[in-house]
Amino acid sequence: MRLRGYRGSDADLLAGPWLPGELLGLPLADWPPLAAPTTVPPPADPGQELCIAPGLGFVRYTELDWVHRRARVEIGLHGVDGLDVLLKTVVAHGFLTLNLSRIHGWVTPLVDPPIGLLADVGFQREAVLPEATWLDGRPIDREIWGVVRND
């Protein structure tokens, strides 16, 4: 798999029923029909790298910091097929194409993300932040997961 650059025709992929900023933004089955979908803006400046995973969704490297060579990654997917391959591609694109040293992102345990797939590509749980976001009428915990390039 290879990520490709965003085009205006991909705009529909930038909104969906997943938590904002989520490293593994997968569709939540119980998202209320009248709740606004989460959206990310189309890329318009060098401060973020937004790529399209063909047939799946978007991968956004944001909070890009070229001094510290790191980025926070958020992914929004409209399906779960091929997630393992996508995550390998996300790490490879971050480390090799963007030449980052570290990528990290938010994981929300309550929505039961497939963290085993994250661990398979080198991500580790680095911090647990209580009450870091809001879902379904209450504050819930969030975790920071990250992977560091070793070379």
């Binding site: 209320p32 029909p33 009248l34 709740a35 809001w134 879902l135 379904d136 009428g137």
Partner: peptide
């Protein structure tokens, strides 16, 4: 029905 869904939507991501 619509009001019930609006309540759920509006308390989904905020207090």
């Amino acid at each position: 029905s619509a009001f019930g869904e609006l309540l759920r939507a509006n308390t989904w991501r905020r207090e």
